[in-house]
Design a protein around this nucleic acid. Structure first.
Lengths: 154, 154
DNA sequence: TTAAATGCAAATTATTTGCAGAAGC
DNA sequence: GCTTCTGCAAATAATTTGCATTTAA
């Protein structure tokens, strides 16, 4: 896990007057030592692999804290369970493309789309606060060859 | 409710070999006689106002059918409950701006953003299937005057 | 020392499902 | 008449919460 990020998270925890517990440390470690997306249940398993005393309740109580910190975001991949994305700490403006063939998720950034979103927002009389784009698309390689070698999250 | 839309929906029902029941009629009527977004629970109330015999179970069984038909879409407004949007029948490519001041939802279409999304998708080696943009933004009028007269959904 | 955090187990809540009776075709 | 659809009530499953105990500061 990135050391700069770790420090920022603990700065947030300290600023909020929260305590540093072994369970929170394990959950934070589990939450940010990966680029994969995960559900609450998956995070419980990953946190327990680090510290077996972590309870379901503590994970469910910690998740909103991490989201509030801004380093973790809840994303909408159209799945039935809530999905969390730990990559906004490093790439604050990324978006998601979901492969309709293999269901992998590709993260991408694009300055033009950011600009355009800001234009649209201003034209409507608003000031942009948060923006997200989700694209579902079919993989050309997969369609041709029945497989693709692309690396994706999730 | 738009008559052309009604016909399309019943064409879908017939094509699927489904039956035309009073409960389904009431639910469809409730679902598409408005431009507002709604939750499953809200749809139950609206459908019961039309036909009081409509049960919760039937609404929950009908919703996925309407979504499958393509005329109703589940949208992500960041709210805790699933929200449904009946306006895709008339405006198949619209997106959502959520006001962070009064929480109203503004629907907008933009051809440029569509084009850009297609470009990005192709550049990544995919063929676009579905695209969505969600913007959270603060209302300039509201910020200045403490209120705004804008009409919005939700 | 004391306020906050934890684990457990029970509660909550949206949604789903089994089943017997009702109704569309 | 046969099959689908419905309402009811029970089941399911993710998340939340109350409380006694533990622990960080």
């Amino acid at each position: 896990m990135d050391d700069e990020l770790r420090q920022k998270i603990y700065a947030f925890i300290e600023k909020k007057g929260l305590r540093k517990t072994v369970q929170r440390e394990a959950i934070i470690q589990a939450a940010f030592c990966t680029n994969d997306h995960y559900t609450a249940e998956e995070l419980i398993l990953k946190a327990r692999a680090i510290d077996s005393t972590v309870s379901r309740a503590t994970v469910y109580r910690t998740l909103p804290l991490l989201v509030e910190s801004g380093f973790l975001k809840e994303i909408d991949l159209g799945k039935e369970h809530k999905t969390y994305d730990p990559n906004f700490a490093n790439q604050p403006h990324h978006n998601h493309l979901i492969c309709t063939d293999c269901h992998r998720v590709i993260e991408f950034e694009d300055a033009h789309i950011e600009t355009l979103e800001d234009c649209i927002t201003k034209r409507l009389g608003f000031s942009p606060k948060a923006k997200m784009v989700r694209i579902e698309a079919s993989c050309n390689q997969f369609q041709r060859f029945g497989k693709c070698e692309r690396k994706g999250t999730g």
